[in-house]
Design a protein around this nucleic acid. Structure first.
Lengths: 359, 359
DNA sequence: TCATTCAATGAACACGTGTTCATTGATTTG
DNA sequence: CAAATCAATGAACACGTGTTCATTGAATGA
């Protein structure tokens, strides 16, 4: 009797002083079972009688019990967090990719630890902090992580996947839009529109994806050269994004006037931002697409669909990329030694005004 | 001798089997001090002799020791995580705000737990998961968290701050762009341009911020009405974002033709996406700004600066908003009972082509 | 010289969970 | 009916850290 009362007192005083933390032990007490049974109820790991589970569930919901993820992660040596490295969210494609990643991550029951990196050393610090939170995986959408750091992750048994970004390390998986397919779609469209004097526009300090797209496109054009008599000129932007594309257009028009380059009739851009800038820059110089040249961009962001641009683009399937990326992480989490996966995600051509559909 | 060898064996076998986890105890062993001293070295909490600290630091760096944040958080009952609720990152303003938040969060030594919410129940689940990770604070940039959920956070001693979003709950702080100042700047600009027939464009199911901007603007216009003889008409978009604005323009032009409305000469939009859409919609109908009407938007996103739009806008200072938001969280984390803070962040007018600067 | 103060240190506890291991009781098999 | 299997359960340990508390030794004051 006395002990019972004392217990009650303790219980009450406890619920008063730190009401914020109701632990599995409290649930166990209330349900009249052991704490282990509570744990089993929520992890569905061991075996447990249905009626016991029922009792526990009722007690838990009455007390408002929630599992402490920190304790859970500490015990399991792994949290339900996934680290995501992003950069330059001002690029609509980047934020769109992030959006797809967040959706996928939550759907699979994880939480996203998002970091924006501006330079190399930040990236190192970031990944190190990811490991300190014992993340279940790391998605790199930007930046080039140093080799030793990534292998440190591998040693810690943390899966790493790169999106549109090749890291040639064993055990590091890789999800990428099919740039070859993109090049084929773009070239087919331009050829069908009778374009022969082709141009490729990219930022000078472009990402791996941009460089790869350029290489792939050039290779393809050269293979078709004999058949169609093509030329391919490089247009270089010295700044990234919209303003870079616009300036490149100005440069190009100037060169046209001085006659140092010949006129191009089909231009392919490494990304949508560059393409929109280029389109506007050409307008400022009095050239309009598709009348005077055809223009195709990469990334199908919202802005490309807008009336003032209506850009023909190669559309990347961000949700497919996101879902493949998380699938890679889970697969490698299950078997760290599985073969390196390289997932090519199909792209599609979206025909709009700057290079319209031919009949 | 035998024991020593056995100890070494254990050590080695340990470093081999789970090399991934080097704990504070390992550092302590190597440095010849107690584990408590290692903890003190890294928390700078208790007092410790400089030479001891030095020894520990050396051992730690040689072993590559890193604090386990999960264990740390479990012990401190609080992690270094900050939960961020976002939505619709396809809106450039949202992603820009998120970017500023990420920067600020990392600068202050936290990590960001980012969740995108699509509906109300997701929001509930999300915030619940935040509490399970014992976050140091929650930033809500979207959605309207249910009252009881927020007060649950407050009970758990988790600070909550809303950005551009009022939750009239005690202990919940609030950072907001100064909509009154925005209204004043916009109206002054339009008045100076001799606009008298004013319009206000907003999405029908707008956010709190949009509604508030509308109310504030209307109040201001009404107060100036006697002096200038103003009229203010509501234009309603039935869809959000760019397409909503565009459709609203079409509707408006149609009404103009049928004569059911009179012509407006100065239009103010609740956000930049709507404004760009409206501008394009008017173009399609043959009306151009600023020749036939003046147009001002809210949010100064990258797209508004582009050549095809050059939209005059009210610029929100996202980095100031972010830094104030985190400051609120820290202040309330230190003193949970402090008075509710309401931080108004000044905005500024960016004059561009759709309502140019007057001389 | 002795009493006092104080910085520095290590042992021990707490944080809240997952999981192993032995035990128990019921059910099935021969 | 006896033996064997098996699901269900609770006690105990482990995860890696921060922090309190007592102890120690040196430095300071009278």
């Amino acid at each position: 009797m006395f002990e019972g009362k004392k217990g009650t007192m303790n219980k009450q005083s406890k619920t008063f002083t730190n009401r914020q933390t109701v632990t599995a032990q409290d649930v166990a007490d209330k349900a009249g079972v052991s704490r282990a049974s509570v744990s089993r109820t929520f992890t569905s790991n061991g075996s447990i009688a249905p009626e016991t589970r029922e009792k526990v569930m009722r007690a838990a919901s009455e007390l408002g019990y929630q599992v402490n993820f920190l304790a859970q992660g500490l015990n399991r040596k792994r949290s339900q967090l996934i680290g995501v490295v992003v950069a330059r969210l001002s690029d609509p494609f980047r934020s769109s990719l992030l959006e797809s990643l967040l959706t996928e991550i939550h759907e699979k029951g994880y939480q996203a630890l998002v970091t924006e990196v501006k330079n190399q050393e930040q990236l190192e610090e970031t990944i190190r902090q990811f490991t300190q939170y014992r993340v279940s995986g790391v998605v790199v959408t930007s930046g080039q992580p140093p080799t030793e750091l990534v292998s440190e992750c591998v040693q810690h048994n943390i899966p790493v996947v790169g999106i549109n970004r090749h890291m040639d390390l064993p055990y590091v998986d890789f999800v990428c839009s099919d740039n070859k397919m993109g090049a084929e779609l773009a070239l087919a469209q331009l050829l069908q529109s009778k374009c022969r004097a082709l141009g490729w526009l990219n930022y000078k300090g472009s990402t791996w994806a941009g460089v790869n797209r350029g290489k792939t496109y050039r290779r393809l054009v050269e293979s078709k050269q004999p058949e169609f008599g093509l030329t391919l000129s490089d247009l270089t932007a010295f700044e990234d994004g919209y303003e870079g594309g616009r300036a490149a257009a100005h440069d190009y028009c100037l060169s046209l006037k001085t006659g140092s380059v010949s006129k191009l009739d089909g231009i392919f851009c490494a990304n949508a931002q560059l393409a929109c800038g280029f389109l506007d820059g050409m307008r400022e110089c009095g050239f309009e697409a598709p009348k005077e040249f055809h223009l195709i961009g990469f990334d199908d962001t919202q802005i490309t669909a807008q009336y003032s641009y209506r850009l023909t683009t190669i559309r990347q399937n961000t949700s497919a990329m996101a879902s493949q990326a998380i699938a890679c992480l889970e697969a490698r989490g299950a078997d760290a030694n599985s073969a390196q996966r390289i997932e090519m995600i199909p792209v599609s051509l979206v025909c709009r005004h700057t290079s319209p559909m031919n009949d």
